[in-house]
């Protein structure tokens, strides 16, 4: 079976006359139809850039400069702008963190939704309207016929995010890339959105890349997990494996620093230092200045290699789990 999405050696850089600055490099992902992958990292780790690079949405001066993005065997990087527009929003859709900046504030929801349908398919207004109504119903918006006539500001934050998800669903895409879609929402509303997305992915076989900084959000949602640090994949594998036994010192540190994994009121295990900036990347393994097990070896860049059923970029894997 060919993968739905296969990314090989993806590299995105800021291109300038004074030399290029690498934002992400050596990104490898594999996603089968209906599979859910969590893409986890802290701010500046390149997780959003990865999502935008797949969608062909990186803006100048940044540019995808290397690698392949194979969507059903077809390299998206080789397509013309027109061809990629026929895929974007149609076969691959994206959901962003802030629905207010996704939706046009001066247009009614029905106008915006029908516009998407008509951009990809020549069908009657009535048919487009019906599809918009069904999509709103699917994400749990009550009385969708009436709500279609509303403007974005008439919705609450959680409802707006549902509308954004409904727009992503309009063309029944095979892949949805969701960039922190629940980060701005309250706990109970986040749970509602997660339950909708989980159900849709299951029922319709839609593959999903869920970008987040919050490990606990994807823990129950994603089968596979990619942990990113400083523009590179640090560790990738099955969610259950990674969470039970993290092998990269960074993944290990992240999990260990969560309050839920520490004794109530005791000092949390912390990763010292801060994430490096792209302009000032440490030599070799980008994590070595913060890593307790770093040695001289870490001054040369570690490769991403298969270890115990996962991909790992580390010379000194963690041997005993943080959770034991």
């Amino acid at each position: 079976m060919t993968a739905l999405l296969e990314i090989k050696g993806l590299k995105t850089e800021v291109v300038s006359a004074d030399g290029n600055v690498t934002l992400i490099a050596d990104i490898n992902l594999n996603l089968a139809a209906g599979e859910v992958m969590g893409l986890v990292g802290e701010s500046g780790s390149g997780k959003s850039i990865t999502g935008l690079s797949i969608m062909g949405l990186v803006d100048k001066p940044a540019q995808v400069t290397g690698g392949q993005i194979l969507f059903k065997g077809q390299d998206l990087r080789k397509l013309s702008e027109r061809e990629i527009r026929s895929i974007r929003g149609n076969r691959i859709a994206m959901i962003f963190q802030d629905p207010m900046s996704t939706l046009n504030p001066v247009l009614r929801i029905d106008t915006q939704m029908m516009e998407v349908v008509h951009a990809h398919e020549a069908i009657s207004k009535q048919a487009a309207w019906e599809r918009a109504r069904d999509a709103l119903g699917m994400v749990g918006i009550p009385s969708p016929e009436e709500r279609l006539r509303a403007y974005p500001h008439q919705f609450s934050g959680g409802m707006r995010q549902r509308v954004a998800i409904a727009i992503a669903l309009l063309m029944s895409p095979e892949l949805i890339i969701a960039d922190e879609p629940t980060t701005a929402l309250d706990v109970t509303i986040q749970a509602q959105i997660l339950s909708i997305v989980q159900k849709l992915a299951r029922d319709r076989g839609t593959a999903l890349i869920w970008i987040t900084h919050d490990l606990s959000v994807v823990a129950g949602l994603a089968e596979k997990l990619s942990v990113m640090y400083a523009g590179r994949i640090a560790e990738q594998g099955l969610t259950a494996d990674l969470l039970r036994r993290p092998m990269h010192p960074y993944t290990n540190g992240l999990i260990a620093s969560l309050p839920a994994h520490n004794k109530r009121g005791s000092r949390l295990k912390q990763i010292s230092g801060t994430t490096p900036s792209v302009a000032n990347m440490p030599r070799g393994c980008a994590f070595h200045p913060r890593c307790a097990s770093a040695t001289q070896l870490c001054l040369s860049p570690p490769p991403l290699e298969p270890v115990e059923g996962r991909l790992l970029r580390c010379f000194h894997p963690v041997t005993e789990g943080a959770l034991s």
Partner: peptide, 13 residues
């Protein structure tokens, strides 16, 4: 949300 790696169903109020 918890780190329990078991796939679970999100049930919402």
């Amino acid at each position: 949300p918890s780190l329990d790696p078991v796939q679970r169903s999100f049930s919402a109020i």
